[in-house]
Every structure is written in structure tokens, then in C-alpha cells.
Computed example of a mutant assay.
Amino acid sequence: MELPLVVGVDGSEPGMRAVDWAADEAALRGVPLRLVYASLWERYEGAALAPDLGRSSEQVMADKIVEAAAKRAHRRQTDVKISAEVLPEEPVPALLREGRNASALVMGSHGRSGIAELLLGSVSLAVAARAHCPVIVLRGNHDNQARPGIDQRIVLGVGEEPADSEVVRFAFEEAADHYATLHAVRAWRCPAHETIDHPLLAGEPARHHEQRATEILEAALRDAARDHPSVPVRRRIVEGPARKVLLEASATADLLVVGARRHGHSGLQLGRVAHAVLHHSACPVAVVPQRV
């Protein structure tokens, strides 16, 4: 059974754009689309009100939100199988549970406005940090269309080997589905404390780090590139902080793929790079959990 692509909806315009993007993505992947809205109306309004007063206003609103999202997704992609559900619980645990049986979770980066926008932004961050599946956060001002195009670019941020295998596979699969070019980027820096007096770096400290970055990049891509020979790959070794390098690359990308490390039962650690791109990327960001 194909695992569905799950979208967290909230009735906001960013949330509806996430529905559009996810519907296109589900069509490309050939998987079902599941729309969920997590609401605490039952806890605060009380299920006992139903016999006397009918459905609460919050319940009515929640039902309308998922109904509108389902209709929008169907208009966008009529052939995609769509299901929708209102979950009477907190958004983060609800979405994390949904992610255990999902091919990926898709979320808007912000909510409706004001305080709600900040809260929903924190929800996206919390889910990206703890989900068991890839989480795609719709950042940037792109048209959110997953349809293939002439200039499709998937940017992959390559970290330390060998923990990047899940991230690299995900990026190659996305590039294959989108008929896109994969731009694999490895940033490197020469620590300020290293000098030409270092015994291993005599005369060329920077060259040592650049060569190491090249080796890490090649090792990370080797297996996935062999398994996806049709995907065009462009390799980039860039001097500078990884956050800055990837944010600059996001300006011309359709999707930026980064990893989050999973440490046994302690969950994920997003790290500074993932935090930075989730907050500031100019394009959608996919955070892929990786086991270490």
C-alpha cells in the first residue's frame, strides 16, 4: 500500500497553498493525499453540548476548513485519491502521529495572522524536528507548483558522511519525479585557528579542507547517483558557512533538501543549518530524518 502524502491544514492562505503544492506532488508520486486539521474544539466546547445545542461553532469551522481544502485539492488534481479528517487534539502530536504512516508531511510556514501566525510557525518547526518522515515546509514566494519545468532545480545540502544516505535518496527521488536537475552542495570552511604551521596543512590549509569537502560530496552521492542514472547532477563545493551557502542557493531552487539527525529514542536534532533554512529559505524546504 502506498503511504499517503499528509497535509496539515488550518484554513489560512499559506495552508491552502500547501494543499495546492501537495496535490501536485501526490499526483507526481502517484500516492493518496490526506488532509488533516487538528483542533481542540472538543476539549474546550465539550462533546456533551452536542445533544442540546448541536455542533459547536469550532466544530463547524473545523469541518468547513477540511471540506474547503478537500474541494481545492480535487479541483487541482482530479485523479488523486483524497481523504480528510478533523482531529480533536493538539496539532504537533496529531501531525507527528500522522507522520508515522505517511510518505511525507507538508505544511505551510505560517498561519492566519498575528499570534496565530507565530504559533503555527512554531508548529511547523516542532513537527520538522520530531517527525519520523520527511517534512516539507512551504517557504518562499514560489507558485508552489510541483509540475516539471525546464529549469527545475532541487538543491541538496550535503552534510557529513555517512549519515546523509536517507537525505540523498530523498533528493534524488524528488529530482527524478520532477524531471529536475539535482544541485548537490557541500560547504566548507578553513578554521581560523589553523595556520600554515599545522603539520598536515603545510602551505595550503584551505586546499586540504576543500579536498575533504569534495571527497565527502562524492561519497555521499555515489550510491544514489548509480541508482538514478537519469537524474542530472551538478556538484558544488563552496567556501563559506553552510547556512549562508544554502540560503543563497534557495533563491533559484524549487526545493531545498536538508537532514535532521535522529539519536535513538531521543528524537531529532535539527541543528543550526536546518533552523536557518526553515526560517529564511526562499523556496520550500524538505527536512529528512537520518539515523546516526
Rank of each mutant, 00 (worst) to 15 (best):
M1Y: 07
M1K: 12
P4D: 01
G8L: 05
E13Q: 12
M16S: 12
A18V: 08
D20I: 10
A26C: 07
L28Y: 06
Y37T: 09
A38E: 04
R43P: 02
Y44V: 15
S56A: 09
K64F: 05
A68D: 14
T78F: 02
S83W: 03
P88N: 15
L96N: 00
G99D: 00
L105M: 09
L105K: 08
M107S: 05
S113Q: 13
E117Y: 03
S124R: 11
S124L: 02
V135R: 05
I136V: 15
L138T: 10
L138A: 12
D151Y: 09
D151R: 05
R153K: 12
G159T: 03
E161M: 06
A163D: 12
E166C: 07
V168F: 11
E174G: 03
D177N: 10
L201P: 10
E204F: 06
H208M: 05
T214D: 13
L217Q: 13
A219Y: 04
H228Y: 14
H228W: 11
V231M: 13
V238P: 00
E239H: 10
P241V: 03
R243N: 13
K244F: 06
L246G: 02
L247G: 10
D254R: 02
V258W: 01
V258D: 02
G259C: 05
G271I: 06
V288H: 08
